[in-house]
Design a protein around this nucleic acid. Structure first.
Length: 318
DNA sequence: GGGCCCGCAGGG
DNA sequence: CCCTGCGGGCCC
């Protein structure tokens, strides 16, 4: 670990944060200049007296005009404060205080891997009914849909790869997964930075061969890499990219467990910088912006935020 | 907690 | 075919 690791970390985070804030400001100005879009929801009925509002205060579970209602989980609701570890996924959740919570909240759905979802009866178990290699939303999968595993998410055609964070082609990227693999990525919800793929020694070394699926950075990334190239193309075509957030992402916008579809984003910038890795290898970076007009992002409640960023006591390494 | 190693889907 | 990939299960 280089001695300037901490410094690089600070620099990267500060620079990327600044970049995102710049984008945010710029877009806010542009949006204000643009003619107001037509309202799709009627919010201007100024609470006529005696007429109770149809819709209660919006909660995380509210769905806006979703023609395909499905069962959704509430991954942000800790069950008795127990954070389920990955290896418990698939097993039943210990149901500690059943009634009190279930009266108010939808049950945390824990469909087993491989078992059919009840979300779409048309889909045979484990099979897709939609093509993940398309741009934009997938029919029947509203923003906010949650899965226990990447496999389930893949079956719903939101993000095809089970492991890889980017899915795309020479037409651009279809989807990305935010799983917290890069420490200096910043997630501000509507804006985030994202690191490309490649440059990892998945096969280990000659003397110590391995057969890994993920590994530490061991060489420079490049925009020649097809996935990174796809994202760069997306930054030029401005086609929307589906985004899922995973439980490992150290962010208030990450789900408490599993994976969640957070809607469409555009790639605003693509650049390279020294990555926060043991060796200072270059990485491809991208800045994303959430397409306006989508259901609000779900945010972790107070007290269940990830510890990762809470303590500034340089406890990032073990 | 960490290490190991696997199936799998997708791309070349 | 082979190789890759910010998963996931199992064992320690």
């Amino acid at each position: 670990m280089p001695t300037n690791y901490e410094q690089l970390r600070e620099e990267n985070i500060a620079r990327n944060k600044k970049l995102l804030e710049g984008l945010m400001k710029k877009n806010a100005i542009e949006d204000a200049r643009r003619p107001q879009p037509k309202r799709t929801r009627r919010v201007d009925r100024k609470s006529a007296p005696g007429k109770p509002k149809k819709r209660m205060q919006r909660t995380d579970d509210d769905e806006i005009e979703d023609p395909h209602p499905i069962k959704r989980a509430r991954p942000e609701t800790p069950q008795s404060g127990v954070r389920r570890s990955q290896r418990n996924a698939g097993k039943a959740i210990p149901d500690y205080q059943a009634e009190s919570q279930q009266a108010r909240l939808p049950r945390l759905v824990t469909t087993k891997v491989g078992v059919d979802h009840d979300r779409d009866p048309n889909r045979p178990s484990g099979k897709r009914i939609h093509d993940p290699k398309t741009f934009g939303h997938i029919p029947g999968i509203p923003v906010g849909t949650w899965w226990e595993s990447r496999e389930d998410c893949s079956n719903d055609a939101i993000h095809a790869p089970w492991v890889a964070g980017i899915s795309g082609s020479n037409e651009g990227a279809y989807s990305v997964a935010l799983s917290g693999g890069y420490e200096d990525d910043i997630d501000m919800g509507d804006y985030f930075t994202f690191t490309g793929s490649g440059g990892r020694a998945l096969r280990g070394t000659k003397t110590n061969p391995k057969n890994l699926r993920t590994a530490p950075q061991s060489s420079d990334q490049s925009f020649e890499h097809s996935f990174n190239k796809a994202l760069k193309i997306s930054s030029e075509t401005r086609k929307p990219v589906r985004v899922i957030r995973g439980f490992k992402l150290p962010s208030p916008y990450a789900p408490f467990e599993g994976y969640r579809y957070d809607g469409l984003y555009t790639v605003e910038e693509a650049w390279m910088e020294q990555g926060l890795n043991d060796g200072g290898f270059l990485v491809c970076k991208f800045a994303f912006r959430r397409v306006p007009g989508q259901p609000p992002l779900q945010v972790k409640a107070e007290g269940e935020a990830d510890d990762n960023h809470d303590e500034d006591s340089a406890s990032f390494t073990a």
